[in-house]
Design a protein around this nucleic acid. Sequence first.
DNA 1: ATTTAACCGAGACGGTACGTCCCGTCTTTAC
DNA 2: GTAAAGACGGGACGTACCGTCTCGGTTAAAT
Lengths: 185, 185, 185, 185
Amino acid sequence: MTQPGRPAGPSPETEAVVLTAALELLLTEGAVSLSAQRLHAATGVSRSTIYRHWPTPREVLSALIRVAPRRAAALSGKVGPDLHAEVDVLCDRLRDKPVDGFLQAIVAGAAWDATLAELRRRYVDDLLAPFRTALAPTGLSGPALEDAVSAIVAPLLLDALLLNRPAARERAHRTVDTVLDGLRQ
Amino acid sequence: MTQPGRPAGPSPETEAVVLTAALELLLTEGAVSLSAQRLHAATGVSRSTIYRHWPTPREVLSALIRVAPRRAAALSGKVGPDLHAEVDVLCDRLRDKPVDGFLQAIVAGAAWDATLAELRRRYVDDLLAPFRTALAPTGLSGPALEDAVSAIVAPLLLDALLLNRPAARERAHRTVDTVLDGLRQ
Amino acid sequence: MTQPGRPAGPSPETEAVVLTAALELLLTEGAVSLSAQRLHAATGVSRSTIYRHWPTPREVLSALIRVAPRRAAALSGKVGPDLHAEVDVLCDRLRDKPVDGFLQAIVAGAAWDATLAELRRRYVDDLLAPFRTALAPTGLSGPALEDAVSAIVAPLLLDALLLNRPAARERAHRTVDTVLDGLRQ
Amino acid sequence: MTQPGRPAGPSPETEAVVLTAALELLLTEGAVSLSAQRLHAATGVSRSTIYRHWPTPREVLSALIRVAPRRAAALSGKVGPDLHAEVDVLCDRLRDKPVDGFLQAIVAGAAWDATLAELRRRYVDDLLAPFRTALAPTGLSGPALEDAVSAIVAPLLLDALLLNRPAARERAHRTVDTVLDGLRQ
DNA sequence: ATTTAACCGAGACGGTACGTCCCGTCTTTAC
DNA sequence: GTAAAGACGGGACGTACCGTCTCGGTTAAAT
């Protein structure tokens, strides 16, 4: 038996409108722009309503990440092909607005609002996870696993995030080979 | 022939007071806090004066970077020892507030104010430069040089900037050896 | 022939709860506080319900006045004793919260909402009515009657309403005597 | 020697514009309308500026009363003529917007904001003062003086304030005579 | 010693964003 | 139908900054 009264939470329509605009804003103007004011201007949804359901920009970001589609994994089980595939996928994602923008925004936001640091760690971990998974068959673990992942991914992130240049895909593929060669010996 | 009248620009004392406080603010609260208001509150120097000489936070940041001490290079000319030395220096700098904070702040600021992106690139380049110099004797150049630098430095920056964990110094030293081994063959 | 279905209007219980709280609110915080929001907070009755039956604070006030107990008249028919009795009754009422508060609230409300002016006039008239009745045997009427009533009552209201001091009961009794003396000659 | 910097307080022009509009608003819409928002809408002076100098409606009212012109007294020294003159003056003032409106507004405001009660008392006292002065030659003092004043003035205020009818000037003149007769015996 | 240009401090002013509170209407659900 | 719960748009409120400006007094170089 339930309570009387209208169900709590934003109406589905409101939620869709707001979060869509929020993603757009995040990618074009950064996390700082996820304020109620800004979302109101972008959507026509009233400030009151936005404050009601997402009192701080942080909540908007959380909702956004919660909703964001997870990439479908397609692993073959063979280490080499899987790693190369993951490199391509990551490069593609970094080239596209959504992931690069998300990353930029979330890094900037973390420096500005300490409570975002945890979100940032989770998001970056999500980016690294496929590589950990793909490397699993090699038996690597602990720091050694982290080092391998880092060697492959870090240069790509450096390019995209700090140097504003396209991720060096070829180099990453060569790094994968180097890493695997090192293990074989 | 010069004009009569008091020389333009802030008095040395004013400049020192303001920039000192600005550095403090940047490291503790990020680039967003370099406003005239905040600097006034932190220094007692009046808002008018600050607006006069540094109309925007961007100008403060520029002045700050211009003033920031460049690390004195101490190269021996031997590739191996020089690279290892540079790794230690960078890890130390990333561990200390000034550089890590500066980096965080400037990355965040870049997402918030596009004109800071150039400053960010220059700052990161300054971090990479010593490694390029140290690798010079190997004859590497162009993309190959960039790749080598990236392989060594990127994982350190990833740790410090995105994962909030101490830079993995040992791994970096091993990477240096790997890179040099690869060249020797 | 009556219609089927639940009878219109608030349930007796709801009405009692709401109007009791409304009186309390009116006396402690003035007519401005008779909003649905405040009544909801004070009673637990839902906002919807209150809006349904008393769409505006004005309706609440009307209901309140309609319900307010009329003083039971106890006239002897002799002018002197009756007038003195009425003076005592009025002073008592002005000393007690209910009437003084009501009066203050309604005067304030009238300045704030023009439609309350009529309510105010009726309420004041109700205060004056007993004196008109008591003076009836003297044969006074028209302006002369009004003047007599006013001479007795106005100073009391001035004390209570504008000067925040207790109504001067003794003086009012003397005024009654003066008025009656004037008529006798 | 004075301090550097612009002199504090509103510029004369700003003050004039705001207080003029405030008086207008007070008389037409009551003390509740002396909010920053309302004054901004009425004058074009920005909300910030108004909050800066008159943080609450109370301050506006105070400023208004402080600025309001005091009536010039013109006493002959003879009790009778002076009292009659004062009655005429008060009736005129009550008939005109400024005083009646001021009084209505201030009474309403006092019920709504306790800190206005003091202002109200002072304003009413200012209305009564001329009568106390005019009665001085009779030697009346203490409660007896208050009673005399009240007998003359209260009915007038009752008319204007609570019954919304013109102050009964003739009756007041007769009351004056009655009071003076009473003293002579 | 005067000029003279620029300094520096204090603060008014208009403007925008923020977060909170309240209001009145509407919708959804249960009884 | 009543009642409850709550979404929603809208507005006011008070605060905090921001950037520009105006005022007044001070300082330091060049004549």
